[in-house]
Each structure stands twice: as C-alpha cells, then as structure tokens.
Nucleic acid binder design. Structure first.
Lengths: 221, 221
DNA sequence: GCCTGTGAAATCTTTCACAGCG
DNA sequence: CGCTGTGAAAGATTTCACAGGC
C-alpha cells in the first residue's frame, strides 16, 4: 500500500536511536577489517569483536538491507559507504575549535577528525598571546571575530574545549548565528542553545562510568 | 515477605543500566547547583537543565528514595553523597595513565579527575626520552615496569591514551595482572580483555554522532 | 497547593528461533 | 549447509496520570 520510493543507495528512512548510537562503532570496525584485507564479514564475527550479539548486528545492518548475503556475510565496502552516508560523514564538515588549553591543544593535533571528513578551519582563543600564530597549519584567531568567521566560511560544527565557566557564553554566541552543531568538552550542561544539536563529552564522567562498572561487576571468579 | 535489610545510606540494590548512564550527569549538575548555594531542587528544574523529562528525573532519583520531599523538591547534599556512593567515587581510585602523546599530555593536566577521587599515580611511556621526568608532579615511568608498579601500588584503573596499534597489547598486559578497569581512548575495539570492565571514548565517533544528529534534525523552522 | 513517588500504559530495544536464499 | 532477514516474544525504558504526603 505504501512502499516507499526506495532508491538504491538511499539512507534508511528512520534509524532507531539505539542503532544510531552504534553506527560509528560499526564504521570504525568495518574500516579496520577492510584495511586488513577482508571484503566480507559475518554477523557473529563482527558481534564478537564489538561485544554485541549476532542478532543485534543483523537487526541493525538489515536496515541498510542490501549488503548481506545468506551463507556468506556482509559486504564490507558497501556497508562502509552506506554507514558514512547515514552518519552524514560522506562529505566534508567545516569545523572550528574553540579553546587552545590542554585539551584543545591535543584536539587540534588529532588526526582522526580530518580522516572522517571533519575539516578544521581555525582555532579560536581568548588568550591574546597565542592569537596570530599557527598550530599544525591551522590559524589561531581571536574569539572576537568568531561570528564573522563562522558566517563567511559556512562553518557548521564547533568543538568547545574551553573552561566550564566560559562554555555557556561561547555556545550562546555560536547558537545565535546559527551554528549547526556543537561538540562540548566542557563539564557543564549547556542551556539556551535550544535547537542546536549538541553532543557532550565529559572526561570525568567517563571515568565515573568506569568506576561504576567496576563496582557493579562482582563476577564469579 | 522479602523486605531487604535496607540500611539507611545503602546503595540501591540494582540500578537499571539506563539510569546508571545518567548518574554522572546528575552528580555534576547537583554539585554545580550546590556551589551556587542551593540546598534543594525540583524535578522539573533539574530536568530542564539536563534536557530530561521531570518524570524521568523522579523515576531515577526515587531509587535513592529518601531525598525527595513532596511540595519541596530533592535535598541536594544528600543526593550528592548518595550518588557518589552509588558511582563508587566516594573513595579514592588508584589510577595510571598510559601514553604521553597529545591526548595523554592533556589528560595528565586535567583537574577534573582528582576532584572526583581519581588519583593519578604515574604515567607510562614507550618513548624513552620522556621517561624519568615529571609532569605536573607525576612521575613518567618506562612501560617496562608497568606490571610491577600496578601490583605494588594496587592500581585499579588505567587510562589508555596510546596509539591505536599499541592499545591492544597494553590492555592485554594490564588485564593479565588483574587491573580492575580500563578507560580506553584509542580508536579500536579491545578484545582479549574479557572480564575487565572497559569504557571506550573515541573522539572521532563523538563527532560522527554530532554529524548524525545535525543531519537528522530537520526541525520546522 | 505543590511536588514526589509510583502503578499502569505506551514505547522502544533486544533476543529468540526459524524460514528461506545463496 | 550456513548465514541472513525477520516475525513474535521477552525485556527494558519512558511517559502518563494521579494518589497522597508535606
């Protein structure tokens, strides 16, 4: 009655949130297998490597529904392309980094971003002493001009690596000029950024998560 | 028939995984409110700040079931103590960092860890040129002696900030001598660490998650 | 009167189990 | 025969809605 247009190579209409949270993991592992020279992988193998059940792998990958062959497994290169399309990382994202402290300095040198299509165009700093220099061939600019830069360069994503007490103000400035997304490393909940998708990474919270997992693992032997 | 002992101040018997994943967030926000001078908070306020529904907040906090007062809200300091106990961060965790590259250097300087009870005892490096120095009053040691150090100092947690191709080997060495938990920043799925609780943080995956959120937010206006 | 705590309903996610294609 | 794709069951999580204590 209502078969969708179903163009080949289209992104599945709606990806459940739980599945979406695993797409990056699938992509990373599949690219790893690909570098190892494999061209197909079975759900039980992939599941074992990622710590997921084989049926969960099949459920997730069946959404893309054209890469599995019964008796054989999944076509890796087709899946890699489909996952990148679904994640939105098959193109380039214009990205800036705000904050060149300890964490910001590490992030600007991180290779993994550009490999996945995130192009770092500039770093913004409050501390005038660093402004004007280059880090890893990326210009360090004053925060004063951030709005103009974002608009002129069609920047879509901002990575916030500023102190907790500055994060809110920076996020608000970026939200105001219509940034598309924020990756926030500051240990605060951002408010007043309604409508701007935000992903939060708090290093201390991750360590707490680990402590919890340790305490709640009174495994036999 | 089977009322549990229910010592006051005990940790709830079993905390659902979904709730557990939010405890760190609750703790951070409650400590923030506490520093602001508040002593109580209502579920709708806390929910608005964290982007969660008020009923979800109540469901979660009712597990600790002694800090809410009808008509008033939740007692912040009591909850903070209960959350720290539940997370296992009411004591000290002996922690080491492995890898002093870009990310490792940032992590060793990060203040948030010790504030939450994670004491960094040493940093381990493969690169001999850094071995023997101190970073932020923490000794930089050779990876060769990591097993002996972990055992002698009763190290429970290890933070891995080594290159992807070295992570597996380091994790295996640590698992072998019975480390309690691993926080892995290397962009690989660790295997052969069966039984050791592991939390993975992959910065590129977080940025992909953001890209996905942006692409799948075709909000009206 | 206000806001928590919680049954019950609704929704979402995972697992089971097996038909069926390659 | 081996492995995917998927109905159906089981399980987990969230939301609704309101009784009831402060």
């Amino acid at each position: 009655m209502n078969s969708p247009p179903n163009n080949s190579h289209s992104v599945p209409a709606d990806i459940p949130a739980a599945t979406a949270s695993r797409l990056g993991l699938y992509l990373r592992e599949l690219q790893h297998l690909q570098r190892g020279g494999l061209t197909t992988v079975k759900s039980n193998i992939l599941g074992a490597r990622l710590g997921l059940s084989d049926s969960q792998i099949r459920r997730d990958l069946a959404l893309f529904g054209e890469f599995g062959k019964r008796g054989v497994g999944y076509d890796i290169s087709g899946l890699v392309a489909a996952l990148r399309r679904a994640l939105g990382t098959d193109g380039q994202w214009n990205t800036i980094l705000v904050g060149l402290g300890n964490l910001g300095s590490a992030l600007v040198r991180y290779r993994g971003f550009s490999q996945q299509g995130f192009q770092l165009l500039a770093v913004f700093e409050m501390d005038g002493s660093k402004v004007g220099s280059m880090v890893e061939s990326i210009p360090v600019l004053s925060i004063d001009g951030i709005e103009e830069f974002v608009i002129q360069n069609q920047v879509q994503l901002a990575i916030l690596a500023v102190p907790a007490n500055e994060a809110q103000a920076v996020a608000a400035r970026l939200a105001k000029i219509g940034i598309s997304g924020i990756l926030n490393f500051a240990p605060v909940s951002l408010s007043n950024v309604a409508g701007v998708p935000t992903v939060n990474v708090d290093l201390a919270i991750e360590l707490q998560r680990l402590a919890f997992a340790v305490v709640n693992t009174a495994k036999t032997s």
